[in-house]
Structures are given as structure tokens and as C-alpha cells.
Amino acid sequence: MATIVGAVTTSHIPAIGNAMANGLQHEPYWAPFFDGYERAREWLATARPDVAVVIYNDHGLNFFLDNLPTFAVGAAPEYSVEDEGWGLPTFPPYRGIPELSWHVIETLVEQDFDVATCQEMRVDHAFVNPMRLLWPDRTPPPVATLPIHINTVQHPLPKTSRCLAFGRAIGQALESFDDELRVLIVGTGGLSHQLDGQRAGFINKEFDEMCMAKIIDDPGALTALSIHDIVKLGGTQGTEIIMWLAARGALGDRVDKIHGSYHIPVSNTAAGLLVLENRAQPALWY
């Protein structure tokens, strides 16, 4: 059976890609952000995943408003990286794992998540940047990938409760896959930020810190927030926290925080990182 080795939730800000392309990781502006990933990579070396399931939001590379799914699952042999319009470097395609994709799709639909399925899929910075942060020397990374998209472009977005349940269904799907695979869950986006309107530049540290704490110990508490609440408290693009909720849902009820970091600002955004593992079941005493 497949095993979920843990989850990484991380921001995916486009500027990260440019900073890496230009070798700026140790510059004073960037070092506090990039330093946070060293511990994540150490953990990854011991977790040894074979597959990364990446829950992310497309920003208008693969999907347009003509045909915009709420939930979409990649089912392609490979995922291409293409020009998004503003000069990020492109890379060779990421390897897919279609047999796992179809098992996930079948299980999700069985659990009433009627997802769109994609036999061709272009992945944008929200997928690529986290992969490059986790495997900076390996592009493409030494894992198969399975991209799962959640819409944040056009409202209505799926409710927070639905995203947490979606993540739980993804977790059950992965753990019921017959092959011996070690699976990493990656949830990308956030934290608080707003790019548009007179409120551009809005950041809410207190809200982010609350969200990070709840993601670890009580993700269900975040389902009390409506999407409208999140826009108000975390900014229009702060809604990407739903990717963290889904990723958290794929883990068990109790998790241990291996690592966390938080830094303001990266570009217009508060950047967050969590590395979480399922808590080992306590031994029973007889």
C-alpha cells in the first residue's frame, strides 16, 4: 500500500522563481525566506518520497474562464512548464504517474468529488516554485508528480469545509493505492496577500499565524471561515490558504510539526512554510 510520508505547505510566489534563476538566495532580502527551506530539505532526505501530490491553483496558464473547473486532477504522463507571460524561466516537463492519477480520480468520484480530469496539463509557478524550493538542484525533481488544481481565480471558490474534505478524500485515495509508494503531499499558496485594488499590499500577520497554528492542530476550526471572511482577513489572494487546508486534510487527525517558517515580505506576500508528519500511533499497553 502507498504511504503518506507527510505534507509540505508553502507559498509559491512567482518572484521566488526569478530569485532562484538569478542566484539571489543569499541576498539580504531573500536569505530569511530561503533559509527556511533548508530544514524542509533535510526532512525530505529522510522522508524519501517517490511521488509528490501537488495541490495548487492555476493562475491562467492551463485554464481560462471559458472552461474553469473547481477541482481538477492531472492524469498525464508528463506536465509541461510554459511561459506565463512575464519572463519566468521554463523547464523540462515533470513526470506524471497516470495509474495513480486514475486511482485517485476513481476514489474521489466514489466519494462524491466530481473532478475534472486532465490528460494534458500545463503547470505554472504555483506548482513549479515549490518543487524547485524542495529540490533546488534537481529540475525536474527525483519524484513522479500528480498535480491537483483548486480554483481561486473566479468566485465562487469551494468552501473551506469542502477543501478540507477534499484533502481527506485525497488522503484516503492515496492510502488505498496498491503499490508500495511513498507519497509527499504539497499544498501551495498564500499566505495573506492582495495584488489588486486600492487595498493592494494588504498583509495580516496575526491572521496568518492563527491559520498556521490551526492547520497543525485544529484544521476543522478554519472551516468556520467563509471565503468572504478569508478575503477580508487574508486578502484576495489569501484565499490560497484553501490549498493548505486540502493538503492538511490528506494527513491524519494528529500531526507533528517538523518545521515551520514565516517571513514578510516576499514580493507582495507573507510567505509561510510548514512541514508536517502524521503522528505515530502510541504503542498499546496490555
Binding site: L65, H155, Q198, R199, F202, H228, V231, T236
Partner: peptide, 17 residues
Amino acid sequence: MVQDIPGTTIFDGHEAM
């Protein structure tokens, strides 16, 4: 969608059309 957040336009079906 209720558009009541100052300096913010929620991109809903109305805006999308």
C-alpha cells in the same frame, strides 16, 4: 458575492462576464 470590502473587487460571475 457581496462587494463590501474596501479597495477590493471580488471577481465573481458578474465581473467575469
